[in-house]
Design a protein around this nucleic acid. Structure first.
Lengths: 232, 232
DNA sequence: CGACAGATTGACGAAAGTCAATTACGGTGG
DNA sequence: CCACCGTAATTGACTTTCGTCAATCTGTCG
């Protein structure tokens, strides 16, 4: 039952707010779960029955319109928290993009525990505030940027986030594998796959990037990419 | 000093989490402030020195690109909370759209008080979670909807939100004054003023709405507007 | 009553979307 | 290890939507 002390996200997930006794208690309520790429964990509009920490893998949060148009509203990495505590309905689908491990709790158990442990709630609040800031910046991207600007931002953002996965030292990675296919990139940026493909090829033609395989990106000229986003 | 007990948002702002003793304490730290329409209270990138409850008026949160493109990332009404507690920089401008009253606190005072009062933090967390849900739905609007769909949504949303201001009983208001000019509507929806104007006239031509003055909207055919958003 | 900011309207262009055909990747099985 | 298949990605031709620029109109406030 003492899986927590060996947990790889023990010190970066919200659990880091808790001391050993508390974490033992929370640990008893949690259940490990394996997700396979493509598996959907929660559905939009469904009652929120569970929340979870991501241990490993990448998941997407998405909402869609009746005619199939979809928008990815969040991407979630190891040590991130998913689900909607405190009663509300889930507002979006949660789907694994890669095989993934999560540590899940029943919503009601978690809610009760959180209310009894202010430090945990505080951690959750800080995370939620940071996520809100990030989501608001995303509004600017979707509402006011051109396709090229969106893509340049996206690539730089990914390069910054995927450092650790690439087990490099510090600084952003110049070569990395995206956990997304073209359709998912399009759903993140509010574009079509065709536009993503065309603008990516523009970047390639300008010598800014190389795309050696479907999901791999190599940044050849970071300053060039940054200049595209410099209107920011 | 006992302005709190007479405060109009006493029971709807985050203060409602507190009992009388606590509120007296918080009240001592708070300062009333009057804002004039157009006044900017906080600037993007600035250190976050204060947080506040809105007592009266409407404010916008916005971010912009160097070349002047602007996106409104939030609209804030009486009893809402603004500012970024817990250390981070303010990520957006906060500007009064109408004359407004706020009750402000120094960030550091508020942070300290909040950490000592879990009930307050909990309220703040619930609000932040709800705001995050709303912001994520907005991503869908910006990323995947057409101009007409955006506007129909916007009008229905406004009609629902402005009920109270119109001192009607229950149900959404069919006639109301927007607190926004055309440019602001455009900045909310990621459009230009020209497109807003044209699509609004389409609605008028279809008998869906009437626009008797610059800022007034009358919904003549709610079902018609709803059918435009029915892809949702 | 008049001036000016804000809103509308029109003509045009550009960016992104759509539809369809082709190509390339990556996994599978022989 | 290679050939094959299916999915994903690219490419091309065309359409649509929205943005741009400019002129005109209108409501609001001094």
């Amino acid at each position: 039952m003492d899986h927590c002390s060996a947990c790889v996200v023990r010190n970066s997930a919200i659990c880091s707010a808790l001391d050993m006794d508390e974490i033992a208690l929370l640990g008893k309520m949690g259940r490990h779960h394996k997700l396979v790429a493509g598996q959907t964990l929660m559905w939009e509009g469904e009652d929120s029955l569970l929340v979870a920490n991501i241990i490993d893998g990448v998941l997407k949060l998405s909402t869609s319109l009746a005619d199939g148009r979809e928008q990815i509203v969040g991407v979630v990495y190891p040590s991130d928290f998913i689900g909607r505590p405190f009663g509300a309905r889930t507002q979006h689908n949660v789907t694994a993009l890669t095989d993934a491990h999560i540590c899940s709790f029943s919503s009601s158990d978690f809610d009760r525990f959180a209310r009894a442990h202010p430090e945990l709630e505080h951690k959750l609040l800080e995370r939620t505030l940071a996520e809100l800031d990030r989501t608001r910046r995303w509004l600017l991207l979707l509402g006011r940027m051109t396709a090229s600007e969106k893509l340049a931002h996206f690539l730089l953002d990914m390069s910054a986030r995927l450092v650790k996965q690439d087990c490099r030292a510090a600084g952003p990675a110049d070569a990395f594998d995206l956990p997304f296919g073209r359709q998912q990139i399009a759903d993140i940026l509010g574009l079509t796959i065709e536009t993503v493909s065309r603008r990516l090829n523009d970047f390639k033609a300008q010598g800014l990037i190389e795309v050696p395989s479907r999901r791999r990106i190599e940044i050849l000229n970071r300053a060039g990419l940054e200049s595209i986003t410099d209107a920011v």
